[in-house]
Design a protein around this nucleic acid. Sequence first.
DNA 1: ACCTGAACACCGTTCAAGT
DNA 2: ACCTGAACACCGTTCAAGT
Lengths: 226, 226
Amino acid sequence: MAPRARRPERREEPLTRQRIVEAAIDVLDTAGAGGLTFRVLAERLATGPGAIYWHVAGKDELLAAAAEAVLAEALAAGAAATTPDEAIRALALDVFDAIDAHPWIGTQLALAPTRAPMLGVFEHLGRQVQALGVSGSARFTAVSALLNYILGVGGQNAANARGVDPATDRTQFLGAVADTWARLDPDEYAFTRGMADQLREHDDREEFLAGIDLVLAGITTRLTTP
Amino acid sequence: MAPRARRPERREEPLTRQRIVEAAIDVLDTAGAGGLTFRVLAERLATGPGAIYWHVAGKDELLAAAAEAVLAEALAAGAAATTPDEAIRALALDVFDAIDAHPWIGTQLALAPTRAPMLGVFEHLGRQVQALGVSGSARFTAVSALLNYILGVGGQNAANARGVDPATDRTQFLGAVADTWARLDPDEYAFTRGMADQLREHDDREEFLAGIDLVLAGITTRLTTP
DNA sequence: ACCTGAACACCGTTCAAGT
DNA sequence: ACCTGAACACCGTTCAAGT
C-alpha cells in the first residue's frame, strides 16, 4: 500500500502522524513494547524526539493509536457470517489473531479498552447478541462477558509474549510451563499437575474458541427464550 | 499482626523483605502503580534505594510479591461453600473484591499470572470444575474460560482506576462513560448508545457475577453429562 | 507551520565504600 | 551480612532556537 520503499525511512516525505504510527508499529512488532522509545523512533524517522510531539500528544496516545490502527485493519476484513453465533466467533477470532500477530496490542486492550477500536467490537458484539434473541436488560451482561473473556485471553497472550524473546516457539514455551506444572507438589497442586500433559499439546486458538463457545452456550441457555 | 506501630516507619527494626513488600503495598494503594518508586520506597523505609535490592531482585519481583501477598490474604478467608457452583462463585468474588480494593493487582494479574497466586486459583477452580462433573479433557477448557474471564474483568477494573484519581466515585466515573456513549453516532453506534442508561445504573460486582454464571451455565450445558 | 536537538526531571539499577 | 548513597544509563517530555 505504501508508495515507495518503507524500511530505509529516509527524510524524503514529510513527517506525518500516520508515518509515525506506522514506524511505531514496526518497532513494537520487532522489539516489543519495551523497545519503543521516542529516541529509537526519532532515529528511525531521521529526526529528533521533539518533532514527534508536534504530531502526537505523548507515548500513551501513540500506543493507543498504534493499537487502534492494527486492530482496525484486522477487523476491516469482516467476513460475512450466516448466523449470529458465527459472526461472534469470527469477530472474536479476528481480535485473537490480531493479538497473536502483535502481542503488544494485548496489553493495550486489556488495560485501556475505553478507546475507539474496542468500542467497535462492543457495538458489533451487541448487535449479534441482539440478533441472538437476548432481551434488552440482559444484552449488556452478555456482551460484557464475551468482551471480558476476549480481553482476558488477550492480556494472557501479551503476558506470555513478554520477557520471552519473539523467536521463541510456542510449543517450546508451553513445554516449559508444562514442565513447571509437572514438578508441582502432588498434594497441593493435584489438579494443575494433571493438566501438564494436556497443556503441552493444546492449541491456543482452538482453546480460545472453545471458551467463546462456552460463553455463547451460557448466553443461549440463560438469556434467550426460544 | 505487626508488633508495633506501622506507619511512622522509623529505622528501629531491620529491613526485611516482608517490611519492604508491606511498604510497597501501602504506596501502591495510596499513590497507584505509577507512584511506586525505589526512591519513594527508600524514603518511606528510611534508607537508600540500594538497600532494597539486597532483599528484592528488582521492581518486577517486588510488584509480583506485593500482588501475591494481597491476593493470598484475600483468598485465605475461603468460606466453606456447599456446592461446586457456590465455591466457584465465592472464589471469583474473592479475586474480584481483592482487585476492587487494590486496583493495581488487576494489572499485575492480567499481565503476569504465571506466578504463584493465580496458580492457586487455577488449582482451586480446577477441583471445583471436576466436582461439577466435567470430564478430563474438557476441564482445562472450563477452567481457562473462567480464569480468563476473571482476569479480563480484573484488567478492566485496573484500567478504569488508572488515570482517574483514587477519590473518584464509581457512579461518577460510570456516568462520564455513559455520557460519552450517549453522544455517539446514532447509526454507527446504535447498540452502544442504547446501553448508556443501563451503564449508568449498573453494579460492577453484580455484573461480574452474572458473567461468571453465564460461563458456569455454558460449562454445565456443554461439558457435563448429568 | 513544522522541525531540531540540547536540556530537564526523573527513573531502575549498580557498586564502591562503609559498618 | 547488610546498608549507604553517589553515580550510570536511560527514559518521556519540554522548549528555545531555527527554517
